[in-house]
């Protein structure tokens, strides 16, 4: 199955991005495809290269980054939501790209299932 994933919350402050990451990883491990992960609302903060958590904890941004590296998962950050929160091209960790909300709607159209993570 082809999944689209929408991440609505920032890292650490909320379980949503951890859950989304674990869902994506589990789906891939089971042989499913992730068409795209779209980061919206505070979810755009998952893409910042400036995140540097203590080394004895998980690194949410690096987890996403590795998912993109290992499985060519398309990680898209909403441009408008990013601009509101100071996430611009220069802020991005490797593996993320910035684009418009159209990419989210397209994911809804192309994916067999669209799964939202947030409140």
């Amino acid at each position: 199955m082809k999944f689209g994933i929408l991440v609505n919350e920032g890292p650490y402050n909320h379980q949503a991005s951890d859950s989304a990451y674990r869902f994506a990883k589990a789906a891939i491990d089971k042989g499913h495809q992730i068409f795209r992960v779209f980061f919206y609302y505070d979810g755009v903060l998952n893409a910042t290269k400036h995140s540097d958590p203590p080394s004895d904890d998980r690194n949410v941004v690096k987890n996403w980054q590795k998912l993109a590296e290992d499985h060519k998962v398309d990680l898209v950050v909403c441009v408008a939501a990013g601009m509101r929160r100071g996430i611009v091209e220069d802020s991005l960790a490797p593996g993320f790209r910035i684009s418009g909300l159209g990419q989210l709607i397209e994911a809804g159209i192309q994916a067999d299932r669209m799964v939202t993570f947030g409140d």
Binding site: L101, I105, G108
Partner: peptide, 15 residues
């Protein structure tokens, strides 16, 4: 506000 922005963009996709 951001849901509304999402709704407006969706209009361009003839869904």
């Amino acid at each position: 506000l951001e849901v509304l922005e999402m709704v407006l963009i969706s209009a361009a996709f003839d869904q």
